[in-house]
Amino acid sequence: MHFVTGGSFNGKSKWVKEYYQLKDSNHLWISFYEKEQVLVNPVLVEDPMVILEGIEVWIKDLAAQYEVSQAREKWRLFLSSWLEWENKDGNRKVILIGTDISKGIVPMHAEERKWRDMTGWAYQDIARTADRVELIWYGISQKIK
């Protein structure tokens, strides 16, 4: 599992595409930025590589639908289902891309604070689980784990 994070529009997806040479490899790109994204069951995935882009948007949906502990539970199930999928075959790889939304001023609205908090926790979960973490700063990558 590989986690790629950094500020908005810093070139995270571009970095992933280039680093993994996605043009020439079989992969499934799931973007939560696209509306009406249906959640894919890992069991049904046949490609060896899966990219989950826009983790913060998926967290936003969870935060809007559930109270914190339930949302956290749903999130953990999501993360572990992908980890399990990856572990079943040595050739499999999951790459999660999440935008850093943690460094602005504290939002006025409670639901925005909840979203931001949950995203931070989720990123900590991913970073703990992942064997590699990359921080992207205007196209420059830094391996932080």
């Binding site: 500020g7 908005s8 529009f9 810093n10 913060e56 850093d100 939304i101 943690s102 460094k103 602005g104 001023i105 939002p107 925005e112 979203w115 931001r116």
Partner: peptide
Amino acid sequence: EVVYEPLGDRELVYIYG
């Protein structure tokens, strides 16, 4: 450095960021 918060709903901030 300004783009470390949700740029989401506000068009102006989103475009500027």
